[in-house]
Design a protein around this nucleic acid. Structure first.
Length: 666
RNA sequence: GCGCCCGUAGCUCAGUAGGAUAGAGCAGUGGAUUUCUAAUCCACCGGUCGGGGGUUCGAAUCCCUCCGGGCGUACCA
């Protein structure tokens, strides 16, 4: 802090508008003018100024007066002459505001010595849990974990930067059925040499193997049933066709046909998938022998899980040796992303609390038995929320309830963000409703959902062979592709290459991983998006690279000319905004805090990527139009260097908040 | 069957607590450079915002309906 007021123009102007409205509007007509004050927003077109207030039209309606008259009255009461030129009224009653350039000058100058770049720490901090990533520790992370990890870490960092207390929590799967499989595999199939050299890889192999063998037997067992189902679906399809032909006017008939076609396709896909599972085993003598030797593998693996949960000494001991190894493997993945968790409280952590949760639900008369399972039925939802299965095992519903209680009672959290796939929306709806009914409504729970990453074919993103894409190999490929671009670019430099091999490797990593993160975050999190290497690493357009390049350009100016940024900041030079490009640059920099606030309103990191892209874009224009070192007037030169330096700081800080690093040279 | 989500330019996507002529990027076309890093900039081209109806001074945004697509839907997490 430096004593200078940090100005968020948007909230300041809204405050002023609110005062004007309170003054103008009788309280008995409109009790709360807040919503009207919120109607002040940045303009979409610079010709309307910098901000516009849109409240006069709807207010005119409420007051039964012509909107332009209302606008005139508002403008007359709006005390903004220290900030803005006189308000202009346009169209049906828009009030357009343009910031005074002198004010931009002083505000921008205040940023120079402000290490928070104009972002005031929040007045009323809250304690957030950001629950994200949450992989299954028994399996290597794959592309399905990318979005949760990347969106979660961005929200984590932005909330912290704004001044909230945050616990990032990795709610790992470390206690489920997959551990029964691993234990079974370890007991029967382990390769000791492989386990010694690479334990986690061996455990993953064992998991896959047991899974494969279980699937095989399941496929064999259900083959006739699947065939029968397919035949029934085909018969139903024929019948649907007959109905459609017989009743050409029935517009539901073609729909029924479509539906049956889908059912047939689904049944055939199930048969195909089962066949493939059988073939992989049948075609391999060794696997075949294993399968024959372990006909009850699925059931036995389940029993290993049950034994583990019951406290069996051998299984518990195995589990205790596996877990640290698995977590360490995850850690190396997170290091590449720069992700750090405050807490890694997985399913196992909550295990001792589950019986108490179910007992509590019963005591509160919220849970009842249904088909042998203990369920909570939530008003308006047909599906039950199963907290204890017929076999006595608890489910992730139970764990999630215990987690909520722990977050309230022990962590004293105010809000919990669940950064999880949209497909689990119903689960969270039931979870939150149940928690509320249990008396845990004080924790604001929020499902921060996101869509699926798709391949070119619009199906979930897979390798060409149809396997899920591992996160490790995804990052490796991103870095390799980035390296090719770095090499090409550096080799093509007019005065010859300037990066040594180590620097190139470093830049490739920063650009490659940054590209992956940015590509994900710049989409609206709700949308599915199509994964594209070419787009995420493109040298042009809305990419991390473009923004990183803008940063490197600034740093290049300073480095090549021996200008020390710290010294520059201390010279006391003024900011001068004599061209539209400079004015636009300063205004854009001053909107950093608006952008960060926008992110947390609905937990949307894409609003920050958008801001950073706009900022880099403003810089490119400024850089193009305003000579810096060639500028003869030393005061103007200093001012422009200061704008450059601020731009670099905003870009770096902003990218870092997204989990993206910057390079000094590119 | 029920529920949730989506349909915006040739492609990939923003924009949805209603606001002015619907925006970017890519692709396409045409310009700018003896480069303060061209991984750049400027301009042009390109849209019945899936269709129809309604509410409103004003609708991509809210309501209804139809079409098209995705996902979820009792003991996996």
């Amino acid at each position: 802090m430096n004593g200078l007021e940090r100005m968020n123009f948007l909230s300041e102007l809204r405050g002023r508008l609110r005062n004007a409205l309170t003054d103008l509007v009788p309280a008995d007509v409109i009790a709360d003018v807040g919503p009207y004050a919120e109607m002040l927003k940045p303009t979409q077109d610079p010709k309307f100024g910098d901000f516009q207030a849109n409240c006069a039209m709807s207010l005119g309606k409420a007051l039964k007066r012509p909107p332009r008259d209302v606008a005139t009255d508002i403008a007359a009461r709006l005390k903004v002459d220290d900030l803005c030129d006189p308000p202009e009224i346009a169209g049906p009653g828009f009030i357009n505001l343009k910031l005074r350039t002198e004010r931009l000058v002083t505000e921008a100058a205040a940023l120079i010595s402000d290490d928070r770049l104009g972002v005031a720490p929040i007045a009323a901090p809250r304690t957030f849990i950001v629950d994200y990533s949450s992989p299954n520790v028994a399996k290597p992370m794959h592309v399905g974990h990318l979005r949760s990890t990347v969106i979660g870490q961005a929200l984590d960092r932005v909330l912290r930067f704004l001044g909230h207390r945050v616990f990032s929590d990795n709610h790992v799967g470390d206690w489920g059925t997959q551990f029964g499989m691993i234990i079974y595999g370890y007991k029967h199939f382990r390769d000791d040499a492989a386990y010694q050299t690479a334990p986690v890889a061996e455990l993953a192999r064992l998991y896959r193997l047991v899974n494969q063998l279980s699937d095989y037997h399941e496929a064999v067992k259900t083959a006739t049933a699947l065939d029968a189902a397919a035949r029934m679906a085909e018969a139903a399809l024929l019948e649907a066709h007959r109905q459609a032909a017989a009743n050409p006017k029935d517009k539901d008939a073609p729909k029924a046909v479509k539906k049956q076609e889908a059912a047939v396709a689904e049944a055939k896909a199930a048969i195909h998938s089962a066949k493939k599972k059988r073939e992989t085993i049948d075609s391999d003598a060794a696997l075949r022998a294993l399968a024959e030797a372990h006909p009850q593998i699925a059931e036995l693996a389940r029993q290993e899980t049950a034994k583990l949960h019951a406290g069996d000494a051998e299984n518990l001991a195995l589990w205790k040796t596996f877990i640290p190894q698995c977590l360490a493997a995850l850690e190396s993945m997170y290091d590449r992303f720069g992700v750090k968790f405050d807490l890694t409280l997985g399913e196992s952590f909550y295990n001792p609390m589950l019986a108490g949760i179910v007992a509590d639900l019963k005591a509160k008369d919220l849970a009842k038995k249904s088909d042998g399972a203990t369920c909570v039925f939530v008003e308006g939802n047909a599906a039950p929320f199963i907290v204890q299965k017929a076999d006595g095992a608890f489910t992730y519903a139970t764990t999630d309830l215990a987690t909520i209680r722990y977050r309230i009672e022990t962590l004293k959290a105010d809000a919990a963000l669940y950064v999880v796939d949209a497909r689990q929306g119903e689960h969270f709806q039931l979870l939150f409703a149940t928690a509320k009914a249990m008396g845990y409504g004080q924790l604001e729970c929020r499902h921060v959902s996101f869509g699926t990453i798709l391949g070119d074919d619009r199906r979930p993103f897979k390798t060409r062979a149809g396997d899920t894409v591992g996160l490790e190999s995804l990052l490796d490929e991103a870095i390799a592709r980035a390296r090719a671009i770095v090499d090409e670019n550096d080799d093509g430099k007019k005065d010859g290459p300037e990066l040594d091999a180590a620097t190139r490797a470093d830049v490739a990593e920063i650009v490659g991983i940054g590209g992956v993160i940015y590509a994900d975050l710049h989409h609206n999190r709700d949308s599915d998006y199509i994964f594209s290497w070419d787009k995420m690493l493109a040298k042009t357009g809305d990419t991390a690279t473009y923004i990183q390049y803008a940063y490197a350009r600034v740093r290049g100016i300073f480095a090549r000319n021996g200008i020390d940024a710290d010294a520059l900041r201390n010279t006391g030079g003024a900011i001068l905004l004599n061209t539209s490009a400079e004015r636009q640059m300063a205004l854009q920099l001053l909107r950093f805090s608006e952008a960060l606030n926008d992110v947390v309103v609905d937990y949307r990191p894409n609003l920050l990527t958008q801001y950073l892209y706009d900022t880099a874009n403003s810089f490119a224009t400024f850089y193009e139009q305003c000579p810096i070192l060639k500028e003869p007037d030393p005061a103007v030169r200093t001012s422009r260097l200061l704008l450059c330096d601020l731009t670099a700081r905003v870009l770096k800080t902003g990218l870092n908040l997204l989990g993206i690093r910057v390079a000094e040279k590119m």
